[in-house]
């Protein structure tokens, strides 16, 4: 018995030691020592994150991972992508397997407070809509009484759907699916009457269906879905880095700094102080956040500004074909309004 007791005490002690050692060093130091950024992405959402035929991850969210790597490590390619489902994403981030999350994730109060995340600025304003077969003759979401609806589990869309039907007082039958792609497969195989997810995805889903004209997207947008990146709570410096990388990309678009002209603009201080501060030719913004002053130059040289990334992956000239809408700059009628770098 004594042996068992001693062993138990020893195990407890070593466990305590291990736990107390946890989460000491800063994420920035960890990432720089590792030389690689562990970025949590989705297992695949068209335009936001998906591997191409050579196994290279591409997409709007993926660009942000690369942007952070460019700022922190000086090389946009030093990213390890961790594909996660909607249910596992926060566990992977909180356990320390992932450093930062860009996984078309809606910022909500409970996730921010209860799941102990710190959200980065919104990089895409979305809302939840419905895709439905035209032959059902339904033109409004309020007519969906008794419909079976495919819905991804573990997402805010699942909760929004329940809220919407509770407020409108009609019944529905949820068909739970794990991934977006599974939802599309179920919907196109007629296993549910409607599919609901973020409106950004619905247009591209409809375009990819066998006969797009046989399906309509209902006019109602039933929720606010501010999509943004997230980091673990408790490391403010790391959260600041993520926050300002996103802000730098939006500010770069506002200031007209592009992938093409960034090298020239950064070569010497110009007469626009905002550009100078962004590109580090004036004051020392980068050093304040624990990086060097050329951090934003590397981001824009590798990824481009917000608009360039948008156009490359989800803009009107891609198969996704989204217009900027709410995601236009505030100057152009959208609500994208990044805090200034000064």
């Amino acid at each position: 018995m004594k042996v068992v007791k001693t062993a138990a005490i020893a195990a407890t002690l070593s466990l305590t030691a291990a736990l107390s050692l946890g989460a000491q060093a800063s994420t920035l130091q960890d990432v720089q020592a590792r030389g690689e950024l562990n970025c949590v992405v989705t297992t695949g959402v068209a335009g936001f994150a998906a591997p191409d035929e050579n196994g290279r991850w591409e997409g709007f969210d993926v660009d942000l991972c690369r942007a952070v790597a460019a700022a922190v490590l000086g090389d946009a390619e030093k990213v390890k992508f961790i594909p996660t489902s909607a249910k596992t994403r926060f566990t992977i981030l909180n356990s320390g397997e992932g450093d930062i999350l860009f996984r078309n994730t809606t910022e909500t109060m409970s996730r921010d407070v209860d799941l102990k995340l710190t959200f980065l600025p919104v990089n895409y304003y979305d809302g939840q809509g419905f895709l439905i077969r035209k032959e059902l003759g339904i033109t409004s979401a309020k007519d969906l009484d008794g419909a079976s609806i495919c819905i991804q589990t573990g997402t805010t869309t699942e909760l929004n759907l329940a809220d919407f039907f509770r407020t409108t007082g009609i019944s529905y039958e949820p068909v739970a699916v794990e991934t977006n792609e599974e939802g599309i497969t179920n919907y196109s195989a007629n296993r549910c009457d409607a599919y609901t997810t973020d409106a950004s995805a619905l247009a591209s889903i409809r375009a990819a269906l066998e006969d797009p004209s046989a399906h309509i997207i209902l006019p109602e947008i039933i929720s606010k879905e501010p999509l943004g990146g997230a980091v673990r709570q408790g490391d403010d410096q790391w959260a600041d880095i993520g926050k300002w990388v996103v802000n730098a990309m939006i500010n770069a678009e506002e200031l007209g700094v592009t992938q093409a002209n960034v090298a020239k603009l950064a070569s010497k201080a110009g007469n626009n102080p905002s550009i100078n501060r962004l590109l580090g030719t004036e004051s020392n913004m980068g050093e304040m956040v624990g990086l060097d002053n050329a951090w934003a130059v590397r981001v824009i040289a590798a990824i481009g500004n917000y608009g360039e990334s948008f156009d490359r992956h989800i803009g009107p000239n891609t198969p996704i074909g989204l217009s900027r809408g709410l995601n236009a700059l505030w100057k152009d009628g959208g609500i994208l309004y990044a805090a200034p770098i000064r």
């Binding site: 068209a46 998906a50 594909p83």
Partner: peptide, 26 residues
């Protein structure tokens, strides 16, 4: 293993379906 972020053939297939060029070929 897809649950822990490793992509086996099924995972690769699912991820591939999200390529905007090829969606809808499940």
């Amino acid at each position: 293993v897809i649950i822990i972020g490793l992509l086996d053939p099924l995972g690769i297939g699912r991820a591939s379906l999200s390529d905007p060029k090829w969606t809808g070929l499940s």
